[in-house]
Amino acid sequence: MSVNRDDGQSGQGAKPAKGKVAARRQARVLAMQALYQWHVAGQPLNEIEAQFRVDNDFSAVDGAYFHEILHGVPRQKTEIDGAFAPLLDRPLAEVDPVELAILRLSTYELSNRPDVPYRVVINEGIELAKVFGATDGHKFVNGVLDKLAPRLRADEVRGGRR
């Protein structure tokens, strides 16, 4: 499920991005795919990371961000899943693996990266789901993240809705 793109887009229909934004977007795309692989295949993270770095052109990727997400999500998996599981309309085990990877990645960012605005986290999650998820997966991801953001970023969300 690896992607080899260097045009700053996360897939069909995505808006082109430049510089740091594009590099972060590419890091998210690859990290989501790597987290999916980790969840489905159960491979060790170091092997997955090495494979992704060999199979993909990282010249336009924020490699440090990719590494942080890929290793941070599994390290905090229990807390991350616990944050969004109560907001699901189905048991965690029934969530599509692609959407699960997106929710974990986005929850990690909401919890650990206050430098990334919550609206950006939600939008990036939706865009990933539009490209890689099931037909209405983006609606599911949007609904969960929209409920999660006020729980994890209460002050920021309150300030943004004035």
Rank of each mutant, 00 (worst) to 15 (best):
A50W: 07
N112Y: 13
L92G: 01
A41D: 15
Q33R: 14
L100N: 01
L92W: 01
D89M: 12
F58Q: 00
R113S: 10
F58R: 07
A31E: 04
R113Q: 13
G42T: 06
L110C: 05
K77Q: 15
E49S: 13
K77R: 15
L100H: 12
T78E: 15
S59R: 15
I102Q: 07
D57M: 07
H67D: 14
G72Q: 08
L35I: 04
Q51P: 03
V29K: 03
I48V: 15
P97N: 08
Q76C: 10
A85V: 08
I102S: 01
I69A: 06
V95W: 08
V98E: 02
A34Y: 06
D57H: 10
L45R: 11
I48A: 01
P86V: 11
Q51N: 14
A41P: 03
P91A: 14
L103D: 08
R113D: 12
R104Y: 09
T78Q: 14
S59G: 09
L100E: 09
E49F: 02
V29F: 03
M32W: 02
Q26R: 15
D55K: 14
S111K: 13
L35C: 00
A27P: 00
N56G: 03
Q26S: 15
P86T: 10
I69W: 04
D81G: 01
V40T: 12
P44K: 14
L30Q: 02
D57V: 00
F52N: 07
G63K: 06
W38R: 12
L92V: 07
